[in-house]
Every structure is written in structure tokens, then in C-alpha cells.
Design a protein around this nucleic acid. Structure first.
Lengths: 225, 225
DNA sequence: CACTGAACCTGCTGG
DNA sequence: TCCAGCAGGTTCAGT
């Protein structure tokens, strides 16, 4: 099965197999309950969405329904973590631009466009998936494709590190590696949720850190789902 | 002589002739000992350096050698005072941008560009001058000019106020004027260096106030040299 | 005092 | 990795 294939790839890439088995288990449960996938909205991409502006405009009606910023606005927005078909975690800065009166994904979006090879007319879609908690999902469908498939290179093509989105307050293995590299001492303790805040988003109560990690491709969960 | 010419202009502009004579004396000493001029670095200006970004990027190797921010970083940078050929004091905010990993002069820089009529390809240069203490100097050379000359209008064309860079903890006469305007009471006392910090910069130990004065063209010495 | 534009500040991307 | 360039928001001075 494809799932086993991915699991093997992860095992091969990282020594922290526990997390990945844990994550795999959740994916498996998710596939058992297909009814738990709820499409929130889709957007056909405009030329600007895939161009040099490096931002995705979220249509206002969808943004205000699924991504309300009322409780957190006035600041620089927040960091959103979403998972794609392959289990990869994508982090985007999500904020409101008063100048254009629009909700946008900025930081991290251009990487998504590039890796998924998105073009104008392709469709990006956002789902909420109930597994044993709620999880956010981002996918895309290329122009002309019949189904919403994720055509991105999987972990067997593009090595990457995924954080656990199920284990709360657990830094990813990559992050632990970085800490060890910097200090020369491996810090294996889980980090206390000292700075976490609580926000209702997607109709779900969520914990997050306002500005947790600068590097979006690599792991470390800011949104605990 | 040109020096006398400048001195007369200062005398004409300000009643505090003592300070200007004092400064003049130092310039005179400086010209006697030309070996005391030490070029720290030059930078050919990019279009962005003279454009709407209102900032000068200091190449990292020069910044970290001559402008280390180790002791003061993590904040909003500091205010740098430099003198040009005419004796005018220029104040710039100097800070580190983590987002672009670069050192920059921001506030005050656009005024310098405008007054010196700088363009892309022109060169800005930073010198340290030993007179009877160390003094920082900023100059520029226009594209194609043979020597590093300061082609800006002198004080006889553009009235300005210069602070004493030689008398420690002495506010300028202009600053005293401002205080009188605000409070209605003339405060002639010298200000105690209560918030001053000590930092080694340009290989020299210097006192400064982290955020002393918002107005850069006008006087008030933040760097006491 | 409200409006406006310039300057300033911060963050991000790509080469 | 550095840094040129771009973009948006905030502050401030002038009207």
C-alpha cells in the first residue's frame, strides 16, 4: 500500500520511528473514516496567486468563515500549519492586509506553488479532517485533472522532515538535531507550552504559538491539531 | 583660508562661538596630521541604497569588523553620529535586520542621499580620524570623480547646526533651545550621563545612549568621541 | 483636527 | 549565506 510505502520512507530517513508510526496510525484511521474529510473551500488560482507576489488571496467569505482573525488581529497575523496528502507539513503566514482589504497567505506560499508546480487555473483546496482530533489539510488539483489529487513529489523523491501533528508540545526530530548541533548536548525533553495561546479556528479550539519557528518547510508544529 | 571661512559662517550662525572655535581647533589639528585619517571601508551604492527603501546596507564583513552590535543587539539598534567634510553631524539609526540577515543604516540615511545628491554607482566611505580623540567621518565620492571629495553644500549654503563632538555630556545649543520651547524654562545645566552605556566600536571605547534623540539632522551628540 | 504623503520599519524572496 | 529588491504597515510632519 502507499501508506506502507511512505512509512518505510520515513523510517529510512529518521531514527525517530515512533513519531512516524504514530502519525501513520492516524493516517490509517483517517482512511478508515472517509466521512471525516470535510471540504471547506476550493479556490481556482489566479495568475497573481502563482506569480511574483508570493501570496494567496483567500476569498473573504471563506476566510471569515473558516479563518476568522478577530481574536488575533491587529498584529502580524499568525502561522498556519497544514498537512498535504503525503503528510508533509506546510506552514504559511496568514494575515489580513488592510490596504487591499483581503486575507492572504504569504510566507511559505511561494514554496508550495513551486513544489506543487501550480499554475493559473489550478485549484487549491482546504479540508478539515477529523481523525482523533481535527487536522487541517491543504491540497491541489491541476487544471484539467478530474480529481483532487496531490501531484507533488512524495518523500521518496524529495527528502523532508515531518513533525508530529498529533503529539502535543513535542519538537520534531529535526529540531532536536538542530539543538544538538548548536549546543553539543542533545536536548530530548519536550518543551513546555509556556507561550501557547488558544484560538477558535475552523470551528475548532486550537493551541498555537504566535511566532514559533522561522523555517516553514522544516518541521515543528505551531498549530496543534 | 577655507577653514577660516567655515569658522566665520559658524560664528555668524550661532552665539556659542566657544564650541565652534573648539571644534575648529580640532579640525586644524586633524589637517596637520593627515596620517590620522584611516579609511575603514567604502561601498559603491546600489540602486536600492539610493532609492525608495531609505536604507543603506552595510556589507556584513565591514559591519561586524567596525560596527559590532553584539553588546547592544536584540533591540532596535542605536543612533550613530558621523561628521562629514564640512563638519556637519549626521545621525543614522544603525541596526541589524534579522529577516534579511543584514546590517543597515535607516533613519537619517535618505536625508544624506538627498543632500549629497547621491546616485547608484557613487561611493560612500567611512573613516576613523584620530584628532585628540577618535572621531567618525562619513564621506562620499560621485561616480567618475577621481578623489574622495565631499561635494555637498557647505554651511555657507545650507544653514545647519553642529554639535560639539569633543565636549562630553554636553547637549548642543539647539537642544537647549528645544527644551526651552517645550517647557518654557531654559535648562542650561549639562545633562548627567545617567543612561549612557559603554561599547567598543571602531576599535574605540565609546559612550552612547541607546535612543537619545529622534531628529538626526539637528544636533545632540549620541556618540561621544 | 483630519487628511495626505513621505519617511521609516519590518518581513520576505530570489539570485 | 549574503544582500538586492520588493512590499505592506506604521509613524510623523505638513497642510
Amino acid at each position: 500500500m502507499a501508506q506502507h510505502h511512505r512509512l518505510q520512507a520515513w523510517d529510512w530517513e529518521s531514527p525517530m520511528s515512533f513519531q512516524y508510526q504514530y502519525q501513520y496510525q492516524h493516517l490509517y484511521q483517517g482512511e478508515q473514516g472517509e466521512a471525516c474529510k470535510e471540504l471547506m473551500f476550493e479556490k481556482p488560482l489566479t495568475p497573481s496567486d502563482v506569480g511574483k507576489l508570493n501570496r494567496l488571496v483567500i476569498p473573504k467569505q471563506h476566510a471569515e468563515r473558516y479563518f476568522p482573525l478577530d481574536g488575533v488581529s491587529g498584529e502580524k497575523g499568525l502561522l498556519l500549519s497544514l498537512e498535504d496528502d503525503s503528510g508533509k507539513i506546510w506552514q504559511f503566514r496568514y494575515s489580513y492586509w488592510t490596504s487591499s482589504q483581503s486575507y492572504v497567505l504569504t510566507k511559505g506560499w511561494s514554496r508550495f506553488v513551486k513544489e506543487k508546480r501550480l499554475d493559473a487555473g489550478d485549484v487549491v483546496l482546504f479540508e478539515r479532517r477529523r481523525v482523533d482530533g481535527d487536522r487541517l489539510y491543504i491540497g491541489c488539483r491541476h487544471r484539467g485533472d478530474p480529481a483532487a489529487t496531490n501531484t507533488a513529489a512524495g518523500p521518496w523523491n524529495t527528502p523532508y522532515y515531518a513533525s508530529s501533528v498529533s503529539v502535543q508540545h513535542q519538537y520534531s526530530s529535526l529540531h532536536a538535531e538542530e539543538q544538538r548541533d548548536e549546543t553539543g548536548v542533545h536536548k530530548s525533553e519536550t518543551v513546555a507550552p509556556s507561550n501557547s495561546k488558544r484560538l477558535r479556528l475552523f470551528g475548532v479550539n486550537l493551541d498555537y504559538w504566535p511566532e514559533p519557528e522561522p523555517e516553514p518547510v522544516q518541521a515543528s508544529t505551531s498549530w496543534l491539531i
